Amino acid sequence: MRVLVTGSAGFIGYHLCRRLLAEGHAVTGLDGFSDYYDVSLKRARHAGLAALPGFEAVEGRLEAPGLLGDLLGRTRPDIVVHLAAQAGVRYSLENPQAYADANLIGSFNLLEAVRAHPVRHLLLASTSSAYGGNTALPFRETDRAVSPLTLYAASKLAMEAMAHSYAHLFAVPTTAFRFFTVYGPWGRPDMALFLFTRKILGGEPIEVFSGGTAERDFTYVGDLVEAVRRLIDVPPPPTGLRAEGGQDFDTLSGCAPYRLVNIGGGRPVRLDAMIDELERALGRKAVRIAKPLPPGDVARTHASTELLRHLVGAVPETPLSVGIPAFVAWYGGYYGSRGLGAG
């Protein structure tokens, strides 16, 4: 296949590109190298991909007029996986314009490019934050998601809605997936596991929200990439086929080749239990400072994985006892004697 991955220098994009390249596919990776977090980490990811056969690196921002249309016209991908976005729940309170630019205008530009240059399957990364103020657990794709708590969540919901309209109007087979707290090697420095590791190694206290009782559906990056890779091969069928053996938990649209799928571990873990596991992996104790949940955060996330398993079968479920040591090993190897730097 010829695959375009946006956000290829990002955490998930890097791992997905490696997986696709290992299978022998031709991958074009687009990234804007925003300075939201350490750009040198993004450059290192892309440098690793550039060393692999079949990879073409392209630098540019989603919101740049004409860039995506020209890129799709030149590379003619079979598959587009749209991972590029302005991420971060809390940062949306500080710099909302970045979310409008990347997540709204950028995603619109991609949809227009795919309309002009049709693909076999368009896959889009959304977020568990889209469930917003929902309290019924686990979060199911069929739940109404009408109460976003941050602009980040609202921008991702808007992207989902725009993608559905394009799927309907232009028959673009589209899958949107909602990710749940992804972690692992090459992870993002703004995420809790990375922050805690840096601070514990540096002898700094860590802030533990909700006294450690908050729960997150931690998803190891290798498991998530496996799920995305399998979903690439399962584009939504044309409108009207759901009735043929369809399941009541499926989200296949009744008027478009569009589907929404959770990708999570389905096994929420308390934050204090995650910190316990990190302490074991580091061989050090953390100094914990209890803090209330920040605005926009929720007390619990829990993915229903019923639809995912129905579509692609059982996917790996790496436990924290394996995933956290893997992250710690990468962190030590990447930062070495600089191990307190990251950030």
Rank of each mutant, 00 (worst) to 15 (best):
L30T: 00
L231W: 05
E317P: 02
D223P: 14
T197Q: 11
G254Y: 09
D276M: 14
S92R: 01
G133R: 13
R267S: 13
L340F: 14
T175A: 11
M274I: 09
L157Q: 09
L16G: 01
R338Y: 15
L308G: 05
L137K: 14
A329I: 05
P268D: 11
G60I: 00
A158P: 05
L241M: 15
D217V: 05
N262P: 11
L20F: 14
L193K: 00
F218M: 13
E160H: 07
G32D: 07
I324E: 00
D217H: 07
P268E: 11
A116T: 07
L260D: 04
A290P: 12
I275K: 04
E244L: 15
A145V: 08
S165A: 15
P235N: 08
P138S: 12
A116Q: 14
G266L: 09
T213Y: 12
V5I: 15
E112I: 03
G212I: 05
V298P: 06
M274S: 10
V234D: 14
E244V: 12
R198P: 06
Y14C: 12
W330R: 04
A125G: 04
G341Y: 12
K156G: 04
G32T: 03
T213M: 12
A158R: 07
L20H: 06
L224Y: 09
A281P: 04
T174V: 00
R144I: 09
L111R: 00
L111F: 06
I200R: 05
P295I: 06
T219Y: 10
G66L: 00
R338T: 10
L151Q: 04
M274R: 06
S126W: 06
V81Q: 00
Y334V: 04
D143W: 13
F194N: 05
V328D: 00
F194Y: 15
F33A: 03
E94D: 15
I289V: 15
G32F: 02
